[in-house]
Design a protein around this nucleic acid. Structure first.
Length: 624
RNA sequence: GCCCCUAUAGCUCAAUGGAUAGAGCGCCGGCCUCCGGAGCCGUAGAUCGCAGUUCGAAUCUGCGUAGGGGCACCA
């Protein structure tokens, strides 16, 4: 990336200036480059001179001048390795600040303490060919250097079909997985099946009741059972397939067996739903297996050996610093009771211990102790046994309280720092007819992903789920979305892609672009240079190229911040830049060399849009 | 009581501590003899409040205000 290259150049320039005694000795900080808001300030800028003013005891403009001067030597030496050969004359202006960095990829300018870099038209025009050469690899970076990363997402309780609540989880998780792949990681996608615990037992009993009902028996749904139609459907499917054999065995055994079968059926349905959203997994990990394999008990012993396990009333607790639990802890309390939770001096007591195992919550030794207890062997399994680093968790905000516990447990069992990374996303609010849709899986009134995808389509669904920062709780109005179907920004981007495809088809049919290979597989196009001299490129064309070149930066941004909404912003910006190009720069009817160059730019745009859409898990249609 | 998240234009949302805070929708006004008008151009319109840190704050800190979530022997 040119940005990283510039950053390195600045660091080298500072080092050289220090060697020459022009700047005092100090450790060189990380040089960050930004895109100035004002295009007249160039393509990249660094405020490093301002940051160094204090430590160097010099005024920022002076520091900037020194760096800029040394930058010339640095870039003269190493630009050749980054930029392919060129004989283009650099774009120089007459200001005394401007430094000619022949062979020039950029010019440097010092403005009130900022060091501004401007990519030259020559460099920009060459990049179109670079994009075309990279093809589908365009946008990929090597942040991961082949390391193994995991994204665990979805992971809803297998007690019903996939609801809209899970929708944001899977779309964000899948997009992050796509991103890490593009960023050079070996990515593993996993769904964690909570197939142990009391909800699963309730689910099994619910399936049993519905199964018996489907076979004409008068079996009531258990107290607090799952009332949804999905459970009825699952029970019906099982009854049709398996007959009534589960009515002829002890009920306990039947409930257990039907629970297992029910989970299988539910997961089959969920997988089908996810396939509609273009989401696949490498593995579905069973929570229960952590306990049947014995790993869970090993972990508890590991913690116990460190003195971090406390026994109290026959239950086991994890306490990060070994401090004892207090009376009342582990019970649901009111606001007032929390407020009253103070020590002798009136200081509020932190909640320190987390329940691992209790005879009250579980009587069956084959089942897992508590939800939190499973998390400990699970992260060990991810990081230490399977070597994922980072292991990323995509969790809804209802799990936020577990975040510090999980990190504490990770430290306690000795996972490397930063090996697990937890992303918390906010829940969305749904409106239908102006009313908030309240959702509960157990009550069966949850809106299913399938229903919404039926209404608005998979691409729009993914786009909406990705369009906001995961920290933002947003409102998803189904009626508006349906009404404004064609105004959804997703169609703007896809339309842009389809329009470029159309141009390419037409160009091939009508022969506007002789010899460029447009419409064919185009290997000649790659080898043929962008004929017009860079100075003939219009500002609109240059702006489009600049925007295209940001794709690797956006991939890096998403990979490091785990915030996939940046893609939607970027996709719109690229489309917008292309639309302006399309309005102002005619291809058909232009002189052959200009038409040729513009066709290449259009195709580079298509590659960029297609890649961005692919990263978002969306289709890039050739026709709409 | 404590913890986490949020507060930006009429609405929904952007903005790696930088220079003049951007889009979409909505409003108002323009643009096709021409490669796809699901488009383009233009007008109007905003950082919740008060302090602080910094050369520089929507962004960081503190105190408020408002909303959401959590602090279960539920998952």
């Amino acid at each position: 990336m040119i940005r990283d290259y510039l950053s390195k150049c600045v660091a080298e320039a500072i080092a050289k200036a220090q060697q020459a005694g022009e700047l005092p000795d100090f450790p060189i900080p990380t040089i960050t480059l930004e895109h100035p808001r004002q295009p007249e300030m160039g393509d990249y800028a660094t405020s490093i001179a301002m940051q160094l003013a204090r430590i160097a005891k010099m005024p920022p403009p002076k520091i900037a001048e020194i760096i800029a001067k040394r930058l010339r030597e640095v870039s003269l030496v190493s630009l050749v390795s980054v930029v392919s050969d060129t004989t283009d004359t650099p774009d120089t202006s007459d200001t005394t600040d401007t430094i000619d960095t022949t062979p020039s990829a950029f010019t440097v300018e010092v403005v009130s303490g900022f060091i501004n870099f401007r990519l030259t038209p020559a460099y920009l025009s060459r990049q179109v060919d670079v994009i075309l050469e990279q093809g589908e690899r365009w946008g990929n970076i090597n942040l991961g250097k082949g390391r193994k990363a995991q994204v665990e997402h979805g992971s809803a309780n297998p007690t019903g079909y996939a609801t809209i609540g899970t929708g944001r989880n899977v779309v964000v998780g899948d997009t992050l997985a796509n991103t890490l792949e593009a960023a050079g990681y070996q990515v593993h996608r996993e769904w964690y099946i909570n197939d142990a615990g009391s909800q699963v037992r309730v689910f099994g009993a619910s399936v049993y009741a519905r199964y018996a009902q489907a076979l004409g028996m008068d079996e009531p749904l258990p107290e607090r059972g799952y009332q949804g139609e999905d459970v009825q459907e699952v029970a019906r499917i099982i009854a049709e397939r398996e007959g009534d054999k589960y009515l002829h065995m002890p009920k306990d055994e039947a409930v257990r067996a039907l629970g297992r079968l029910g989970i299988e059926e539910v997961m089959t349905n969920i997988k089908r739903t996810l396939a509609r959203l273009n989401i696949r997994y490498d593995n579905f990990f069973s929570e229960k297996s952590l306990w049947t394999s014995g790993l869970g008990y090993e972990m508890i012993e590991r913690l116990r050996a460190k003195g971090l396990v406390i026994e109290h009333d026959g239950a086991l607790w994890f306490s990060e610093d070994g401090s004892p639990i207090r009376s009342g802890q582990g019970q649901r309390r009111t606001d007032e009771e929390y407020a009253a939770d103070k020590d002798e001096s009136g200081q509020a007591l932190p909640v320190q211990a987390v329940l691992i195992r209790s005879p009250k919550v579980i009587s069956d030794p084959e089942e897992r102790p508590t939800y939190f207890a499973s998390d400990i062997p699970y992260m060990w399994h991810k990081v230490m046994l399977r070597g994922f680093n980072p292991a990323i968790y995509v969790w809804g905000e209802d799990h936020q309280a577990d975040v510090p516990r999980l990190y504490a447990a990770a430290r306690a069992i000795g996972l490397p720092d930063g090996a697990i990374r937890i992303l918390i996303y906010r829940f969305i609010t749904l409106l239908r007819s102006g009313q908030e849709v309240r959702m509960g899986k157990r009550k069966g009134n949850a809106l299913l992903i399938d229903d919404v995808v039926d209404e608005i389509g998979a691409d729009a669904f993914r786009y909406i789920m990705l369009s906001r920062s995961v920290d933002t709780k947003f409102t998803f109005d189904l009626d508006v979305l349906k009404e404004q179907n064609e105004k959804n920004p997703v169609y703007y981007v896809q339309y842009g892609h389809a329009r470029i495809c159309s141009i390419e088809r037409k160009a091939a049919e009508e022969g506007w672009d002789q010899g460029s290979g447009v419409g064919g597989q185009g290997s000649e196009a790659i080898s043929s240079p962008l004929t017009p001299h860079p100075s003939t490129l219009t500002s609109v064309e240059l702006a489009l190229i600049r925007k295209l070149l940001q794709l690797p930066e956006v991939v890096e941004l998403v990979a490091t911040t785990l915030q996939p909404h940046h893609y939607t912003t970027y996709a719109r910006e690229v489309t917008q830049a292309f639309s302006k190009f399309y309005e102002e720069c005619r291809i058909k009817g232009s002189p052959p060399d200009v038409a040729h160059a513009r066709m290449k730019l259009a195709r580079a745009t298509r590659l960029t849009l297609a890649k961005t859409l692919k990263l978002m898990g969306m289709n890039a249609p050739e026709r709409m």
